[in-house]
Amino acid sequence: MSMTTTNDLIAETQGKRRFGASDLIGLGVILALAVVGYFLFPTNLALLTRIIAIALLVLSLDLVTGYCGVATLGHAALFGAGAYAAGIVSAHYGINDPFAMLAFGIAAGAVAGLICGAVILRAHGLPQLVLSIALIHLFHEFANKASSWTGGSDGLSGIAPSALFGLYEFDLWGRTAYVFGVVLLVLVFFVLRLIVRSPFGMLCRAIKEDPIRIRSMGASPKAALMKMYVISGAVAGVGGALNAISTQVVGLDSLSFTMSAESLVMLVLGGTGSLFGALTGTIVFMFFEDVVSAANPFHWLTMVGALLIAVVLFAPKGLYGTAAAFVARRREAK
């Protein structure tokens, strides 16, 4: 084939391959929501920062569950590892620079990803799920027992991040932490968009569909999934570190089964296999939880349950997934 023809092929697909309109719209929406949130809830920026930290956990979960098809109920282990690492280096070793704390959080998340991946990927289906639950309990128990480092059930306190760039203190209102969180989320989102569209992202989608077929193409599904687990750990580590930096305390709940299960619920709520779905699910779930628990402290869990049942029954692809499918159908109809 001549180069002209190849160039034609490349030109034909320009819309599909560019970091294009949909990505820019996505980034624009994230930034717009961030600005709206800042002005709508100036006294509740801590909640918004927490939403960002959890969104990073859900994005991380989406990488292994949504894109690779790994079933896990223990993903908070990666988030908690990042949170404790960032907290411990500050509280015990006096490393208070937020970027250094973040780096330790990322590294610890990646190592936790490596450990969890090495165990979880040995099984499939239900046994895989059981292994993930066992792991989150082990991580939780380890953090509980190593109380001289982690503060055990009292939580790790004494975390004192220094000013960002030596200029912006982490203030009581949580403004610095919020802006820091938004910037981290945008950066992570940008990098993940590149990764899921890369050859590696394509390989992972193929593994999700048929690992045996991938082996017959000469690729090792396990090696690819391990790599994705480490990337996922790094992303969860960012979320954990952000949580430690913004709240200046790390509790055992950040390594809990409940948080793992809730992150999976958020992912399913938004739609698996899509970064936008992960973000949508987190925002909707956490806002719903916050608003409903304030409005009706006695029955809020019932309402959360009802919302989930409604979504799973009537929008099985999740809120974002269903909306995206609807838009795609409308476009085709035209």
Partner: peptide, 20 residues
């Protein structure tokens, strides 16, 4: 594309899109 990239040892690349 996946087969070609795998054959050439490029299927693990984290950035770039085969369409380009």
């Amino acid at each position: 594309a996946l087969a070609v990239l795998q054959r050439d040892g490029r299927s693990g690349r984290l950035f770039g899109n085969f369409l380009a």
